[in-house]
Amino acid sequence: MDLLLPVVVATIGAGTAIAFAALGELVTEKSGVLNLGVEGMMLVGAIAAFAAASSSGNLWIGVVAGVLAGMVLSLLFAFLTLTLMANQVACGLALSIFGVGLSAYAGLSYVNIVLPTQPVWALPGLAALPVIGPLFFQHQPLVYLSWMLFAAVWWFLYRSRAGLKLRSVGESPSSAHALGLPVNRVRYLATLFGGAMAGLGGAFLAVMYTPMWVEGMTAGRGWIALSLVVFATWRPGRILLGAYLFGGITVAQLFAQSRGVAIPSQLLSMLPYLATVVVLVVISSNALRIRLNTPASLGLSFRPAS
């Protein structure tokens, strides 16, 4: 138990950034928009959060800056794909490459700066519970926020009228438009939410999880978040579990290296990405499941008939 507790706690922390990004991409894809720029938005959110936090001395200002940076990039993507009708796949890939380069350039002057560590929030009365307390009630505040956001998004998608409209737009934008729904406005809002969550994931990495800036610090987490949406078949609960699965694999290889396991460190570092490929292969083998759960208009542009 003494070994298991820190592993599980570290797993939750490692999976939180992926959970934020994947949750945002889930809502975006539910509206029929495919944004492959998650990695770039996470990196821009991370450097914006780190720069704002180091300049102001306030980590929460950094978190807000990271969210806003992700939203700005997602707004650019939405303008290109929803207003100008550009190809969503090409724009998403370009956005990811742009974000990687922009964050690397903007972060040159922040490489050797370390921010103060954000202390964990021990919830009164719950943190003292045996086993459960240290596992679930002694975390950094953004971990609790991720749980609340998942509950809120599940309720929004499946229990609210607005969520029904969003899913309707993703399934058949022409039918939704015929019923009077503002298709592009819904998609704009969903895309902005996705950008905000990607920026929040990057901000969590830069100012709380590892409070320092390193070029390319997301290390492919944005791409894992994209694959996680497919892995979860577009369901919020499965996304959270999947994020912790990938986080657990990352933590496991770090613990294995620290204990001197006789396996080359390069092979251990490959494990999270190898797991991503294996999961995608397994999920893709069931074409019927993918077809039934994929939003019907995913990646398709929509222009209202005149």
Rank of each mutant, 00 (worst) to 15 (best):
V111M: 10
S284R: 04
A178L: 14
G220M: 10
K165Q: 11
R235I: 08
M148K: 00
L76A: 07
G237L: 11
I113G: 10
F156M: 08
A52V: 07
V214K: 10
T16Q: 00
L240P: 01
S54C: 04
F255W: 14
P130R: 09
L95P: 14
R291G: 10
N35M: 10
L126E: 07
L145S: 09
V229Q: 01
G101D: 05
L164D: 02
L240Y: 06
P173W: 06
P295Q: 05
I47G: 14
V72Q: 05
A104D: 12
R221P: 09
A49C: 15
I132T: 08
G15N: 09
L108H: 08
S103P: 12
V33K: 03
G133Q: 12
L82P: 15
L145T: 13
L76E: 00
L95H: 03
P124C: 00
S301L: 07
W154A: 15
A275L: 06
K165I: 14
G248W: 02
L298N: 02
F50G: 14
R289W: 06
A198I: 03
L43T: 14
W234V: 09
L76D: 01
L129P: 12
F79E: 03
G66S: 10
L80V: 13
I18Y: 00
S227P: 03
L82D: 04
I263C: 06
H139R: 04
S269K: 12
Y209R: 08
S109C: 09
S265M: 01
K30Y: 06
L267N: 03
L200N: 02
G70F: 00
S96F: 07
A127Q: 12
E29P: 08
R185P: 14
V278K: 12
G202Q: 03
A51C: 12
S285C: 05
G216T: 11
P272W: 00
A10E: 10
L268F: 04
S54I: 02
H177P: 11
G70S: 02
V214M: 12
L280Q: 03
Y209K: 09
R235A: 06
A252H: 09
I283R: 01
I132C: 13
L241Y: 01
W147Q: 01
I239R: 09
T294C: 13
I97N: 07
F77T: 07
L76S: 07
L135V: 13
A232G: 12
F77V: 13
P116A: 10
K30L: 04
L142P: 13
T117E: 15
L59P: 02
G247N: 09
A256M: 14
Y273I: 05
